[in-house]
Amino acid sequence: MKADALVYCENEFGSVDGKVANGLIRQSERYSIVGIIDSSKKGQDTGERLDGVSNGILIFESIEHALEELSTIPEYFIYGIAPLASFLNDEQKEIIFTAMKSGMNIVNGLPEFFNDNIHYTNMALKYGVTIQDVRKPPARKNLHNFSGRIGEVKVPIITVMGTDCAVGKRTTALVLVEALRNEGLNAVFVTTGQTGLLQGSKYGVAIDVLTSGFATGEVENAILNAYEQEQPDIIVVEGQGALSHPAFTSSSAIIRGAMPDAIIIQHPPKRKSYCDYPKIPLLDLVDEIEMIEVFSKSKVIAITINHENMTNVEVDNAIKRYESKYDLPVTDVLLHGCDKLVRELIKTFPELKRESVLI
């Protein structure tokens, strides 16, 4: 059974830095989300706020407000913000301590590991709660170098890349996996970030906290584990950041470790600059595609849209424009689903059609 969890996302729910909370509201196999804390949106329905469809999960002003309204104390308190800054300020630390005092176990997705801080661990001990640092990497002795065994994977490996951070790569990958499964295919998702792990992904690791010497190997190892354990028809790997993004290197490690057979690229047409770097213009989509194809020696086979700050009419116009310009299938999976992507994958990998017919 899923464990009840309250998610902290002050001032950020529905925004770029709230992507952890956003993802957990949309899907979680591990937690039953009972509420979001964001005083700037108190009283709103999280589903309506995020996707325009009510889900009955409310946004609370504070921990105290949430515990007054909820019938029981949630088992877990999740820090649901993914900021550029790695460390909590004093006010945010007090939020964590308040959650501990209330009897909730702490789930931390930051690269600041609470278990390494004696103040957090002493507080947890005092109140009888646990701390889980989701992004803390395995011990060095358990990390994997790249082996080249990725060549043993005999089913299509697809990566969902993007033109920036927080553009919906994980969401698109998960929606695609579900659509492929609905076609009778055994599709497996491999995560590369903390939100995928929090959502319950069985395979993957948060690679942005790994040293460069192991990031590629850990991506490869996660895919190999998924392949050997699940015997899938297709593997979909979550991308991180953007290959062009000057602040992050995760994309290159994912491409190297996965050696994808095809790539889907996610793009926010209205975004003009890189996430958290307003003075650095976003690379044009055509240039990002070229960079990815040269680097990966693979092909971008579809484009998916992030509709932030766009009307439905603008999304539809962007889809038509991109399909004409790039001669590729284009969709917004949250608005229009994955039919185009599934058709393109079956066209690109005909063995998938045979598998779906057999099942």
Rank of each mutant, 00 (worst) to 15 (best):
I63T: 03
I63A: 00
I63E: 03
I63D: 01
E64D: 12
H65K: 12
H65M: 02
H65F: 05
H65D: 14
A66Q: 04
A66V: 07
A66G: 02
A66T: 04
L67R: 06
E68F: 07
E68C: 06
E68L: 13
E69D: 08
E69V: 12
E69H: 14
E69S: 15
L70C: 10
S71H: 12
S71P: 05
S71A: 12
S71Y: 09
T72W: 04
T72R: 12
T72Q: 12
I73S: 04
I73W: 05
P74G: 06
P74H: 10
P74N: 07
E75N: 02
Y76H: 14
Y76S: 02
F77P: 02
I78R: 11
I78N: 01
Y79I: 15
Y79T: 01
Y79C: 06
G80C: 03
G80K: 10
G80N: 02
G80F: 11
G80V: 07
I81Q: 13
I81E: 11
I81W: 14
P83C: 14
P83A: 15
P83N: 14
L84G: 01
L84A: 12
L84T: 04
A85E: 15
A85P: 00
A85H: 13
S86D: 04
S86L: 08
F87I: 08
F87M: 07
N89F: 08
N89R: 00
N89C: 05
N89G: 06
D90P: 00
D90I: 00
D90E: 08
E91V: 13
E91I: 10
E91D: 03
E91Q: 03
K93C: 11
K93I: 10
K93M: 11
K93D: 07
K93F: 00
K93V: 11
K93W: 00
E94T: 02
E94Y: 06
E94S: 03
I95S: 02
I95Y: 00
I95R: 00
I96G: 07
I96S: 10
I96L: 15
F97E: 12
T98G: 01
A99T: 09
M100I: 14
K101I: 14
S102Q: 07
G103N: 01
N105V: 11
N105C: 09
I106C: 03
V107W: 13
V107R: 10
V107T: 09
N108G: 03
N108W: 08
N108R: 09
G109Y: 14
L110R: 13
L110Q: 09
L110G: 02
P111G: 03
